[in-house]
């Protein structure tokens, strides 16, 4: 393989390694669970993304075959990461946060883990 191709692939691998490391370091450094959520949901996205781009480049330049699995991995990651973050955040809030510490909801009902939804005709 050409030198430039190898350079490009290693660049993406290094970038992804750095961001993966920063994400994990964030878990240690930040002080509460909600803050810690920010580290893995963001920094890891680019971390994994870098590896996937490097992998696509490698297979394209090495075999001339375009590999689509990486796009699927990215897609599934984008679908699942926010949901995991949301579950962890809600669990943390139920266990550790008082309603008074949160800003008021500007609609009629309060936040869903503290308040009941408005009763509809189907429920009654």
């Amino acid at each position: 393989m050409e030198f430039i191709a190898e350079l490009l692939i290693s660049l993406f691998l290094v970038v992804s390694g750095v961001f993966g490391f920063v994400g994990s370091y964030g878990l240690v450094k930040l002080k509460d669970s909600v803050q810690r959520l920010h580290a893995p949901t963001k920094a890891t996205t680019l971390g994994v993304g870098g590896v996937l781009i490097a992998s696509m480049l490698f297979f394209f330049l090495d075999t001339g075959h375009i590999s689509i699995h990486e796009i699927l991995i990215a897609l599934f990651l984008f679908l699942t990461a926010p949901i995991t973050a949301n579950f962890i955040a809600k669990t943390y809030m139920v266990a550790n946060l008082k309603q008074e510490k949160l800003p008021k909801s500007s609609s009629e009902c309060g936040w869903s883990i503290y308040d009941k939804p408005p009763s509809s005709d189907e429920d009654s």
Binding site: A89, C109, S112, K116
Partner: peptide, 15 residues
């Protein structure tokens, strides 16, 4: 990070 909706889904809580 979006964490929660209000019970009637009219408002979203963001951290």
């Amino acid at each position: 990070v979006s964490t929660m909706l209000s019970a009637d889904a009219g408002c979203i809580l963001v951290h």
